[in-house]
Amino acid sequence: MNRRQLIALVPGLIPLTAGAALAAAPVKVDANTLFNDAEAPVGGNAQGDVTIIAFLDYNCPFCKKSAPDLDRIVATDGRVRLVYKDWPILTDASIYGAQMALGAKYQGQYETAHRALMAIPGRNIDKAAMLAAVKTAGIDMTRLQADIDAHADAITGLLQRNLALAEALKLEGTPIYLIGPFRFSTLDYDGFAQAVSDARAHKPG
């Protein structure tokens, strides 16, 4: 996917399918890409002792179901580092949403856009609904478009690395949460809490 194929902030302009859009040239990834990709948004405590790496899609109902509990465990625990891996696999609109969220990062609003997209009610969310949600969340849309234009290659590169990571790790689908040495799919709050506790217990001494 090149710069021309990225979105403009008008619904309907993504020319490729969800599968084809990101399946470009092979991308090299390693463990550092997984944990410390400089382009990947990070939430929670940057110095936290447990890292949750979340592979998500904005049209994934199970991602949406888990999202409030994920936010809650990060907030209540206080020592969790959360790495977001946008992995849009379900619809073209999923790619559109991921590009908007990642574009919002450049104005320091990734999590604002992310939460707005995850909170959209209903199913098979289209690009117009995603655009409206991001607007309503208070994102500076003029700046968002400018940042998406200016950082198109960086955004595309990150999405391609996320895709390559998911393939290299043989991730099953969305959501997948890598928590310490464990891998999970949909979790509720208690599940996240237990997973974080287990991850701490398995940290090398």
């Binding site: 990834v29 390693d30 790790l169 043989k170 890598l178 040495p181 464990f182 979790l187 997973a195």
Partner: peptide, 29 residues
Amino acid sequence: MRRMRLSHLPISAAVFGALLSAAAASPAV
């Protein structure tokens, strides 16, 4: 709760992926 081990971090994603794949037999995910 469902879970599976990721094992320790290797340097290459290929090795990392192989470890994950090997662990996929557990009922975790």
